[in-house]
Design a binder for these strands. Structure first.
Lengths: 119, 119
DNA sequence: GTAGAATCTGACACTGATGTCAAGTTCAAG
DNA sequence: CTTGAACTTGACATCAGTGTCAGATTCTAC
């Protein structure tokens, strides 16, 4: 599929898709004329990338991480190096703290919302 | 207390504390010479501000929200306007989705970490 | 072959919180 | 009074992902 369709189906802008490729996160075949041509599983991959971005990982880490992910359709996954595992554990911890933070903020919002919807 | 101590106790840089003041998030008295002087409850407030930043709210929204928060020590809280409530509900929803995203990413990381720590 | 839609590359802008540096002022203690 | 630490304002830089625009090329359908 071409970039426009991929963008539509993932909700990610074409600009970002090209950026992902530039960062080594997303590969594409090319048509004879040079247009990008993506396989079906690119959809899942892009969604995964977006999740990881949303989780606060930078593109470099994602690039290291992706080859180790057992894709739905993908081939054999690479095993993470001990060093990468260390990094990922740190990320995991960070995400854990972030979730806790989000919960607290949600509680804060709830209080204010509650107070406003009370007589 | 002065800005240095507040920074130390909250883990937030002096730069950021001044920025918060500039954005109307954090008030301070001034000494005769112009140095900022914070009350004890500024500590809680700064921590709360950080949480909200971490939750992805921008300073403008936080500025609207803060007066409606019943501070631990604070006086009477303002009731949120219906419009603000709408905004906050949207933020709440966004945070909810973010948490779901983070969970998925955490699961992804776990898979990779697991796979690497297996024979 | 031609028109119009889609895509290409490359460059520059933005956002928003924070880092950093400079030059000057104030504070606290000797 | 002096000295060094702490503080002040203001300006400019950074980061990373994304938006946007321009000019050229390719694709698709008639």
């Amino acid at each position: 599929m071409r970039i426009g369709e991929l963008a539509r189906r993932t909700g990610v802008s074409e600009r970002s898709l090209r950026y992902y490729e530039q960062q080594g996160l997303l590969a594409s075949e090319r048509t004879p004329g040079g247009h990008r041509d993506y396989p079906e599983r690119a959809v899942d991959r892009v969604i995964r990338i977006q999740e990881l971005f949303a989780a606060g990982l930078c593109s470099k880490k994602i690039a290291q991480l992706l080859p180790c992910i057992r894709d739905h359709d993908g081939g054999p996954a690479v095993t993470a190096t001990p060093w990468l595992v260390q990094e990922l554990l740190a990320e995991r911890e960070r995400i854990h703290r972030t979730i806790a933070d989000l919960r607290r903020s949600q509680a804060t919002l709830d209080e204010v919302i509650d107070a406003a919807s009370r007589p």
